[in-house]
Write a protein that binds this DNA or RNA. Structure first.
Lengths: 195, 195, 195, 195
DNA sequence: GATGAATGAGTGTTCATTCAT
DNA sequence: TATGAATGAACACTCATTCAT
């Protein structure tokens, strides 16, 4: 059990930093402190090892998403929650986030790959969450009038963009999180609601 | 000259869809309709071919950035311009954008790689542009008060996030561009300015 | 004891159909319903398992040969017996025959291999049996005059050829056995003896 | 062209003596005096190399068969021709014969393998040739009455058995060929015809 | 410019075998 | 007896690159 985890951790780290194709099974074995064949004892092959890591990471992520409260008096709280959650996840699982953000895209061309399924599921979930949130907020006049679908897409883009830059260590880490929340608040909330 | 371009195009396309490590020189040669050694006649190696494509793409991109007007009565116009420019670029050079967005990150670990230099230069440029823009906007009371540095980082994140999703064909293409501009306008402009 | 037999049976079947080199210890273990290390508990290794099967099969075969009656009034009866015995053996131990016929040859280059010893012993025995048979038959004028040594070799070839084709399921099974006996009778017996 | 032939020869020799699974591509390369990748430059893989050798050998063999005269005054001449041809082939292409005789059988389980197709084709051809020969011989009363189908199968068995033993160097080489022809003559020809 | 032939250095994977339990 | 975990050695095959022409 122990060595299996060592393999998973080493692989996650290497796949994240070097990509799937740029990482060799020998590197993984060495980094994990085991021999190459052990990888094949625990996993069917390099692909399954990759998929396994990915699936676990996405599972954790989706669990966190599902646990977000869906009924709040102020709708914007839900949006702030979503932003906070994504910033938190990058810090908690940096390797996995990096991996999803950078190694997945290459695999998105294959419609049968786990990446495709999970990325689609993520988009669907976020779309549902944000759509309901915006609709309710507008109905209650907490939010200003706006076209919902494009705004939802834009919000997803904002979240994934910021998450990615943080994973890539391209942001300088300071108050980006709170700035983002304030920024979105100003963009969404009706003037009356701000007081 | 002709065949050299065929190689460059084929390589750009393949690097973009399969990544650097996932693309073989044989694939490039086949896709370009030439033989492998010709690649080595025109380029030192796979690496140089890659950086060559990258450098050209970045050059085009930076040229476009430099041509943006820096003095406008309304500061937000500059921000809208920036957003529009990025959306335009994805559509004009989809392969190259995809390549920069997805193949570059893996190379960012190497501080000597062209990717690193260009990404840093991009960040620097955008930071300068946006910082000046926001400072001026706030000074003129066109924009609300806000912490400048984090907001700049966030705006960069927003732009790169949306660009990336469009390159990955993850957005559904509709009015995201205008929604983004409106969204930012509401978030930045002071209430008085809106009228 | 039970599992040991399962291993032997599985191995015999697999070696026969896939050859020695084409069969893995894992396949044998799986087919036998045991784990790989158990093979090594019962046998020194893959080689010993192979030779063990081979030796047992040859032992059965040689026992049958030894039990053939050596003194008959009509010499041809001994030849018919030999033919019948070989046809019978293919049907009784198809896997083992197949194995001897197809996996052995590759091992014949190694003069120290069990295959070599057994195949040599078989040739020697058959040569002795047939030589004596023919000599006696010719002496008694039951058989026509013929060069003995080449005829013996040819008879061995006939028997092994037919056995092999039956093991490979290349013959269509019909009256080949009786046809063979009649054929040989006509070829060997003097005209006078036929009446 | 030269090195390609060296590879083919080395492979034929090694496949013949060690079997397909028992032969490594490194052994082939070493024996051929080339490097391993060159094998893959000239052939798709080990399988194609094997198939290529097999196909060439069978082609030569079938060509020889087709050139046998089909109309002779004495039918037995055709049978003697067939026997002679097979003995000749073993001596001309010992590696290939060995290979067909010993490496093929393992592949016969796969109905799609080239071995299967060729072995079937061989059986069909020989059956047609011998059937016509026997029918005609019996009609002309050159041959004794006998059940045709089983005798044909037996003759094929005789030929392949003797060929195989010679390829395996199990016969002592002497007058087996003429003994076989005489043997078959006595078995087939009617008493009247013998004078 | 352009290519057919060739290769050193690896790549993912498998195999027979062992060892601690 | 029996097995889960582990490995050294090898295997078929690929890749970026070179060289003679």
């Amino acid at each position: 059990m122990n060595k299996k985890h060592q393999i998973l951790n080493a692989a996650a780290k290497l796949f994240a930093t070097q990509g799937f194709d740029g990482t060799t099974t020998l590197q993984i074995a060495t980094e994990a402190g085991v021999t190459e064949p052990l990888i094949y004892y625990h996993f069917k092959g390099k692909d399954e090892l990759f998929t396994s890591i990915l699936q676990t990471a996405f599972e954790k992520y989706f669990t966190r998403l599902e646990n977000l409260p869906r009924r709040t008096t102020i709708q914007f709280v839900q949006i702030a929650n979503l932003i906070n959650l994504h910033f938190a996840i990058v810090d908690e699982m940096p390797n996995e986030t990096f991996l999803v953000m950078n190694t997945c895209p290459v695999k998105l061309n294959d419609p049968d790959h786990v990446c495709r399924a999970n990325v689609d599921r993520q988009k669907e979930w976020l779309t549902g969450y944000l759509t309901q949130c915006l609709e309710e907020g507008i109905r209650r006049q907490e939010f200003v009038e706006m076209p919902i679908a494009p705004t939802v897409e834009l919000l997803i883009g904002v979240i994934s963009g910021l998450t990615r830059r943080r994973a890539l260590k391209l942001d300088s880490n300071r108050q980006v999180r709170t700035a983002t929340i304030d920024f979105c608040r100003r963009a969404l909330q009706a003037v009356d609601a701000k007081s």
